[in-house]
Computed example of a mutant assay.
Amino acid sequence: MAAMATHPLTVGFDLDMTLIDSRPGIKATYEELSRLTGTYIDAALAVTRLGPPLDDELANWFPPEEIPAVADRYRELYVTHAIESTPAMPGAAEAIAAVRQAGGRTVVVTAKHQPNAQLHLDHLGIRPDALIGRLWAEAKGEALRAHGAAVYVGDHVGDVRGARTAGALSVAVATGPCDAAELRAAGADVILADLTEFPAWLAGYVEAGAA
């Protein structure tokens, strides 16, 4: 298990399906992308497997040579179709606040295009101390380590791998495509039903670390 936090405490959070429920906006964006390109995309299926980079999902629908241009178009459409329709996950604001109340810092590390991730955070009034985008799985560990994160909170087995790479405690929330059993099998140290359970867990974690 990763070591307890050193002070100041830094906690990392994933974005999609951890802090925000991005399914409605992503579904709408895929539907519009499908309409404009004339390429069938099962948007309802795509939103059941959020987490990996956009290019990975597009590879299910487009030939490799088209993916860079299609990804750029998706990100442009995303601004119009996904930001306002995306709510915060239950407990998201309170989770960020709990870290601050404990005297800590928060950093969001996500596979999402960073400018679009920032639009989500601004729209919802979620203000981490740092945001790093376009990183997935083990690559997230590099950013977490650079920011000294002792804990990383995410919903996907890729987030567990990112925490492990950083030497951080993996706190998994079962609010995304991976259920508790998958997260546990991937090596998550802590599994929460959702972020509403995070403040109480953090209080115990900080108290244990200070003992």
Rank of each mutant, 00 (worst) to 15 (best):
V11Y: 00
D14M: 09
T18L: 09
R23V: 15
G25P: 14
I26L: 12
R35P: 00
R35Y: 07
L36S: 13
G38Q: 11
D42W: 07
L45W: 14
R49S: 06
R49Y: 06
L50T: 04
E57A: 13
A59E: 07
A59Q: 06
P63H: 06
E66Y: 00
I67D: 07
I67A: 06
P68N: 09
Y74T: 03
V79Q: 13
M89V: 11
V99C: 07
G104S: 07
G104V: 02
R105L: 10
T106Q: 02
V109N: 00
K112M: 07
Q118M: 13
Q118S: 12
D122W: 12
D122T: 15
A130Y: 06
R134C: 13
G141F: 10
A146Y: 06
A149C: 14
Y152A: 03
G154L: 14
G158I: 04
D159Y: 02
R164C: 01
R164Q: 14
A168L: 09
V171A: 13
A174R: 12
T175L: 14
P177T: 11
R184C: 06
A185D: 13
G187R: 04
V190C: 02
I191G: 00
L192K: 01
A193R: 09
F198A: 03
P199W: 10
A200I: 09
L202A: 07
G204R: 14
A210Y: 02
